[in-house]
Amino acid sequence: MMKYLTWMSIAVSAITNSQMVLAQDKPNLLPLAPLSCLLEPSFDVELSSEVQGVIKNIDVQRGDRVKKGQTVMVLESKLEAAAVNTVKARLEFATRKVERNTDLFKKNLISDIEQDEMMTEVRLAAFQLKEARVRLGLRETKSPIEGVVIQRYKDPGEFVDETPFLRIATLNPMHAEIVLPAELYGTIKKGDTFNVTALGSDQIHQGTVKVIDPIIDAASNTFAIALVLDNEDGVLSAGLRCEVRASSLAKN
């Protein structure tokens, strides 16, 4: 019985040591050939207008850089501007009316109801002015990101609705998508850094893991990760193929 227990202990120890060795060797399970990846913009958006209308002007062209919050398109807004001026005049008149009757109210020459009606007119005019200004603001479209204009679909004078009129992409930072074998799942963590080389270039760029797919593709037995690469110098272009070699996949 004692010999049996000793043999079992040796077997369990051998299996445990074997599992530890396999776990340590997981990064080496990659093929020696370089893994391919694809460079993509970190953000890629198509802008459309919140309201319908005729384009008054678009101040950007293809290839232009835009800042976040920059106005990129303005619709014709004569009616909306006129509505703002009308309601603003109404508010100013209602305010003057209250001011003129303040002394009369203090002397009880006008009733509480009359005073309340005048104050209500002021509040309603203020709300209407706010609404009119919002409607006027909707005639302008601002960029939600900082980036480069990739495509312009509309020109001044054309009608615009919910369909896109402009496409903007953020090229700094850049993203690189890599497909890895399932054996490596769990060995790569967010924040790990890998070396990436764009095809046709010998320059090595460092990428940091930002996204790890939570699901392994059963058909291919692989999973994908996304790297973030600094592209302040603008040498990387979206759509380029890139390579990550097995030797560079060891965690730094």
Score class of each variant (00 low, 15 high):
1 M>F: 12
3 K>C: 05
5 L>A: 14
5 L>N: 12
6 T>D: 11
8 M>N: 09
18 S>Y: 13
19 Q>C: 08
22 L>H: 11
22 L>S: 05
22 L>A: 08
25 D>H: 12
34 P>T: 08
45 V>M: 11
46 E>P: 05
46 E>S: 13
47 L>K: 02
49 S>G: 13
49 S>M: 15
52 Q>L: 15
55 I>N: 11
57 N>T: 13
58 I>C: 09
63 G>A: 14
64 D>A: 08
65 R>W: 05
66 V>K: 01
67 K>M: 12
69 G>Q: 07
80 E>I: 05
80 E>H: 00
82 A>M: 10
82 A>C: 08
82 A>D: 10
82 A>G: 08
83 A>Q: 15
84 V>D: 05
85 N>C: 07
85 N>V: 06
92 E>Q: 11
94 A>P: 06
96 R>S: 07
98 V>K: 00
98 V>P: 05
100 R>S: 10
103 D>C: 06
109 L>N: 07
112 D>I: 07
115 Q>H: 11
115 Q>N: 14
119 M>T: 02
120 T>G: 08
126 A>R: 03
127 F>Q: 09
127 F>N: 10
128 Q>Y: 13
130 K>D: 14
135 R>P: 02
138 L>A: 04
142 K>G: 06
144 P>W: 01
146 E>M: 11
146 E>D: 10
146 E>G: 12
152 R>D: 11
154 K>S: 15
155 D>L: 15
158 E>M: 14
159 F>A: 14
159 F>W: 11
160 V>A: 12
161 D>M: 11
161 D>P: 08
169 A>Q: 08
172 N>M: 03
172 N>F: 05
175 H>G: 00
176 A>D: 04
177 E>A: 04
180 L>M: 12
180 L>W: 04
186 G>E: 04
186 G>T: 01
190 K>Y: 06
193 T>I: 10
196 V>F: 08
197 T>I: 12
198 A>G: 05
199 L>A: 08
200 G>D: 07
202 D>P: 07
203 Q>C: 07
211 V>A: 04
211 V>E: 09
211 V>G: 01
213 D>Y: 03
214 P>Q: 09
215 I>W: 00
218 A>I: 07
223 F>Q: 01
224 A>S: 13
225 I>N: 00
226 A>T: 03
227 L>N: 00
228 V>A: 09
234 G>Y: 03
235 V>W: 06
236 L>C: 07
238 A>T: 02
239 G>V: 02
241 R>K: 14
246 A>P: 09
248 S>L: 06
248 S>K: 05
250 A>Q: 14
251 K>T: 13
